[in-house]
Design a protein around this nucleic acid. Structure first.
Lengths: 290, 290
DNA sequence: CACTATTTGTCCGTATGTATG
DNA sequence: TCATACATACGGACAAATAGT
């Protein structure tokens, strides 16, 4: 077996002393839950392996056995592990089975493929004055309404992305609410006569608040990948502002960086045609469209 | 008109405003603290503006006034606001004057520039058997030690990235511990005779655990941008595995997507030479009040 | 078959923290 | 500020299921 308790204990003492802290506002059992969940998600505890016992965990993290028990029960309630008396706690979570990996190359293909292979539900669709940030990004009057749409995209039956889009009103009126609920926004923009030229996007991270947590099926305080993108038409006119929030356990952003010029040139660029050696990328929902 | 008032009202109720939830593990005052902090960070409450009163906040979020007061006090303790009796609660947070934005173009230039403009502290440097995931990524024997380095990169005096790198032992022995503490790893790899060819990276998000929170200067449970990258030399040999964790308030990943071919081609690619119109890139958050 | 060690499940009593009115 | 209700966390004790000797 790969599981040598002594070696594992020694290593984790040398390298990673993950700890929980009583002074923090979040309860101990939930801190412990997060630590253990991270270990499962990162493959430290692979599928089928046995987690340490309540007693060992309680000792390692300096908490009572009841606290360790509760953290393990929360893991079981979340579907990461199964617990059996006398047998232990076994990992039943398989990481990348339901994961979507989007490649930065072929953005539009990805969106189209997703539009076909995933479903989207429209949570909101209205015209309202934009926030200061959106108004500046779209270069429009903060007092004039713009079209706002809030959508959640599903893989199978599980949501993985929460999209808030803003489009200038004159462009937004070229398509209907139902069309937006069924077709990719970029397709509708094209059909509206917009010549999409380029986009500027910023990738960050944030926490799920109650507004997001419900529709995305995560608990408040979960980490989310945040992408903010402004799409420009020919002539530098901004035509779309989108704030996308992704569940990192179901969606990650992948790209290949290749060197420009010969080996001595000090420049990199993302390649648009990555090599096909993908040990990671063999995900079920990632097929190229002809 | 497309705008039906009743429909709009119903919809905006579906896309809920931020709320706090008694059932969640984190205490109400901290949930409220996170919500208000997010609003400050995202510019809903800009620098110098007045936050709603305790009474209004308590009403809006359906909590007692004491809970609202405590959340505001935590904001004050964190330095986001100042509170004065009879005057109210005023935002004093100046968003991201110290924010770093890395562009996907010119990766190496960025690293070199950062190496000059930022300082790095070496937290760990040793040789040890790699984890299962690293061993697979580096295509090496899980039992044979590889070089591991843990570094934290500072902007001014504040840390913004936590880097854990793994390099095959034969390559790692080509440079010393002190050299790693002062020079970019890619430079050292080149000097070691490695012809760096391309890299594959995956971007996600995660929560800060106790292991990371301390060195990065954030509290446990904070959101982090997570980039996992494998660098390959000529001939597809993997030479470096890096797991980078970034504070999203100090670092974001920015890129420009430009269309390939003419306007009808359905393909996008990141551009290596973006246009210079950067309304965003000058100041991270809009703070142009003179 | 018993015997034992391990592991999870359940219960108690108590102290502290959180949230409300 | 105070009193009340509930959640969290602890140490301890015992029962029940499992696996190995």
């Amino acid at each position: 077996m790969l599981d040598n308790p002594d070696l594992t204990a020694m290593m984790s003492r040398l390298a990673d002393p993950p700890t929980v802290d009583q002074r923090l506002p979040t309860p101990l059992y939930h801190q412990l839950y997060v630590v253990l969940r991270n270990k499962i998600l990162s493959g430290v505890h692979p599928l089928g392996s046995l987690l340490p016992s309540e007693q060992r965990i309680a000792g390692e993290f300096q908490v009572s056995r009841i606290t360790a028990k509760r953290a393990l029960n929360e893991l079981a309630a979340s579907g990461f592990v199964v617990r059996e008396r006398g047998r232990g706690t076994r990992v039943v979570y398989q990481a990348s089975a339901t994961m979507v990996r989007s490649r930065v190359e072929g953005l539009l293909e990805n969106l189209l493929a997703m539009g076909l292979e995933t479903r989207v539900s429209l949570l909101a669709f209205d015209y309202r004055p934009p926030s200061q940030e959106v108004a500046q990004a779209l270069d429009c009057d903060p007092a004039a309404p713009v079209q706002r749409a809030v959508r959640v995209r599903m893989l199978e039956t599980e949501p993985f992305s929460h999209l808030t889009t803003h489009v200038p009103a004159d462009i937004g009126r070229c398509y209907t609410r139902d069309e937006l609920a069924s077709q990719p926004l970029l397709t509708l923009l094209e059909r509206s006569g917009v010549r999409v030229d380029h986009a500027e996007q910023t990738i960050g991270a944030t926490l799920a608040d109650s507004e997001i947590a419900g529709p995305l099926g995560v608990e408040m305080g979960s980490p989310l990948l945040r992408i903010e993108r402004v799409v420009y038409a020919r002539g530098q006119r901004p035509v779309e502002h989108i704030t996308a929030l992704y569940r990192p356990d179901r969606y990650q952003y992948q790209m290949t960086l290749t060197r420009v010029g010969d080996g001595r040139a000090r420049s990199w660029t993302p390649s648009s045609h990555p090599n096909p050696t993908d040990t990671h990328c063999s995900t079920p929902t990632q097929e190229e469209t002809p």
